[in-house]
Amino acid sequence: METLEIKNLKVAIDHKPILNGVSLTVAPGEVHAIMGPNGSGKSTLAQTLFRHPKYEVAGGTMRFGRAKLNEMTTDKIAQTGMLLAFQYPQSVSGVSVQNLLKVAQSVRGERVSVDTFVKNLKQKAKSMRLPAEFLTRSLNEGFSGGEKKKAEILQLAMLAPKLVVLDETDSGLDVDALKIVGREVNKLKKNGVSVIIITHYNRVLKYIEPDFVHIMYHGRIIKSGRKDLAHTIEKGGYNQFIKTKQKG
């Protein structure tokens, strides 16, 4: 398994700086939660890790094991085993989850027979309480918010990831769905998969226990700690850290 190493990452959109030097190391099997108020750069970090063309890397390095993410395209990054669960999953008309996963698997050179593949997929969907019809319907078209997020986790689980980034996967989920997502992510963790959870709220952290919690603000990680940091945030909000930082 690989370690993700982000060093002094600086990112801009249309020359406007968004990330101002983020450093983060995620060792295999670790769970990191990245928290922070709106507009602090959390999602930018997620999208930049996967080299969204909109985000210009202005400085710093990103590595996953030996893979230099700075120099790679999104598809190649995915092929290293890094996968992203989207905050706003795109709908693709006429393409089913099943179809996309089949193509994605064959791209990765996995030669699974269609029958075995469909059987596995159906089992996984059932365990996540996603009706089988979701697998053959157009991807995310007419899915509810919760269904979209579940479908994201289903996709990740089926693609044998090494590191997953969950970009606000918890928002829009009811408690039952949150439990299911939590259970699936914990299964991945048990298999040595690293997890980065991007979230506003710590309620998801009840179901997925983080090893580390980071607070992002103005494009920087201003505070890192163990999981109790999340409780501190819950009690006093983000302001306590922001003020400390400003005073300091």
Partner: peptide, 11 residues
């Protein structure tokens, strides 16, 4: 849409 699909490993 392209970014979404590429993030699953498709070129």
């Amino acid at each position: 849409q392209i970014f979404y699909l590429m993030s699953r490993g498709l070129s």
